[in-house]
Design a protein around this nucleic acid. Structure first.
Length: 479
RNA sequence: GGGGCCGUGGUGUAGCCCGGUAAGCAUCUAAGCUUUGGGAGCUUAAGACCCCGGUUCAAAUCCGGGCGGCCUCACCA
């Protein structure tokens, strides 16, 4: 098998094929099948995200997958940004034209806000927080890849309406906390919260805020974005509320889009190692596998023992009992490690004699034999620390992959050695764009944005323009 | 969209340059025996030359076109 550190792309492609996460042999380009082992985990990811959103007073709904052309054309910037990527439904039956073209939603602002103008009437209706889980469709150009860039992908999109900018910006904060709670703490993926430059924001937004992670080969990978849309969509779709004085006001809108299928790919890319997948404990398709060691003449007592343990652990965890007799234990060990099951329990005649069980843990790739009476205690201890071990390992690589630079030479050098950089830069407003273009041309890397925690302005000069720098920006190549 | 590489059983490949044997190997699948503490062994079975056209006595192999894939650049919340 390919080594991750040698060729991450090939390692990734090989891994997702070997582990049967997706089947990309479906005969439509950019559309893949998320198979069982992957789907079990995707569902858990959805559940966790949804329950966090529900706790924060979002409510679910399901919007239609098609959006009429006229909705799509209501917000000028939005159309301009998305039109090249839209799949249009134009016919029915035997080549009869539809009266109106329908877009397969590339994102659902223009579906939600059409209805928000009917549903939102007064300030008493605000804040108005809804979300849907589902798939969206974008005609990406030919460089599609499973999980990271598909023409169909799975995500959640929230759409919220507020009285004013202040309330809307608080929602942006909440979205980022949600990202941290779920993507970092449960999925174990470290992220940087970045405000995108003006030239790289969501089509139609006032500002775009992203949660970017960094892969071990030094590329940015966007896991979620949240957008402050201001009132432009509200104006286009007539989303108004009456205030206490009976006066009409435009609602301030935000939307948040954590990409579930892409986050899954990120989990594979970040946590996977040369033995295969490693799932965070909470979203592992199965959390524990039990492998009996069946020695001739002693199968009976071993099988009885593992069935007891299986039954006991199944009350709390999702467990598989691999009692297949055609495969040797060694082969099963390799197999389940590749599949990313967090904990493996081994039991053979010797262990029964010693009142012990073998425990292998995939976060540390280590094995020990413990007393059987300590089993549940040990498992719950491992379960508790498993994901944070993965997270810490990921964070170490993440931090090491960011380097500080003060000039173009150092920038080029850092990018060449597969790092992303933090550097002083003149401006992420329109006036900085030409210098960003300059960097792009010279190095192929992009300005991904500024970090959101308050920072004092740099004393250094901008690495591209030589003007005083307003910000430290993060620069790198992306997926 | 540009450039490069490629298309052989379910999967990974050899064969192609230099046309001709029963298209080889590994894995997977099924059946049986035997084994099982870190990828066991044997026997048997099943399974493939992307599509269309051309050249030729003869095409997996050469030529043209199509379709599809991978890498890469551009584009892209």
């Amino acid at each position: 098998m390919q080594k991750k550190e040698e060729n991450m792309n090939e390692w990734f492609n090989e891994l997702i094929r070997e582990t049967e996460l997706v089947d990309d042999r479906y005969n439509v380009k950019g559309f893949v099948i998320y198979r069982e082992w992957c789907a079990m985990s995707l569902k858990k990811m959805y559940n966790i995200f949804e329950s966090v959103l529900n706790k924060k007073n979002h409510m679910p709904l399901f919007m239609p997958v098609v959006i009429p052309e006229q909705n799509f054309y209501k917000e000028a910037e939005h159309v301009k940004g998305f039109t090249p990527e839209v799949f249009w439904v134009t016919e029915h039956g035997d080549k009869e034209k539809l009266e109106e073209k329908l877009a397969l939603r590339p994102t659902s602002e223009t579906a939600f806000y059409q209805m928000y103008s009917l549903w939102i009437r007064s300030y008493n209706d605000l804040p108005y927080k809804r979300y849907q889980s589902g798939s969206v469709y974008r005609y990406e150009t030919k460089a599609t890849r499973p999980f990271l860039r598909g023409r169909e992908f799975l995500w959640i999109e929230t759409h919220c309406a507020f009285r004013d900018e202040k309330a809307a910006l608080e929602q942006i904060q909440e979205d980022m906390e949600t990202t941290k709670e779920v993507i970092t703490n449960v999925f174990g993926i470290p992220v940087l919260f970045l405000q995108r430059p003006q030239w790289d924001k969501f089509a139609g937004a006032v500002n775009t805020y992203a949660a970017d992670t960094i892969t071990q080969n030094g590329k940015f990978l966007q896991t979620a974005t949240t957008h402050y849309l201001g009132t432009s969509f509200a104006k286009a779709f007539d989303v108004k509320y009456k205030d206490e004085n009976g006066k009409d006001n435009l609602a301030h809108l935000t939307c948040y889009g954590p990409g579930i299928s892409r986050e899954f790919g990120t989990i594979v890319a970040i946590h996977g190692d040369n033995k295969g997948l490693r799932f965070p404990f909470e979203i592992a398709p199965k959390q524990i596998v039990i492998v009996p060691v069946l020695i001739k003449g002693k199968e009976k007592e071993v099988l009885k023992k593992v069935k007891d343990i299986y039954k006991k652990l199944s009350k709390t965890y999702e467990v598989i009992l691999d009692d297949n007799t055609q495969k040797t234990p060694g082969e099963k060990f390799y197999f389940w490690e590749m599949k990313g099951v967090p904990i493996r329990i081994e039991i053979g005649p010797r262990d029964i004699e010693n009142k012990k069980v073998g425990i292998f843990r995939r976060d540390l790739n280590s094995k020990e034999f413990i007393l059987e009476k300590d089993l549940t205690k040990t498992i719950s201890k491992i379960a508790k620390e498993f994901t944070s071990n993965l997270k810490n390992q990921a964070e170490k690589a993440f931090t090491e992959n960011i380097v500080e630079v003060k000039d173009m030479k150092a920038l080029e050098k850092a990018l060449e050695s597969n790092k992303v950089v933090r550097a002083p830069f003149c401006s992420i407003d329109k006036d900085g764009e030409k210098y960003a273009d300059m960097i792009k041309e010279k190095t192929g890397a992009e300005i991904k944005g500024i970090i959101l925690t308050k920072e004092t302005a740099p004393k250094e000069l901008c690495i591209a323009s030589g003007k005083p720098a307003k910000h430290y920006v993060y620069i790198g190549r992306g997926y």
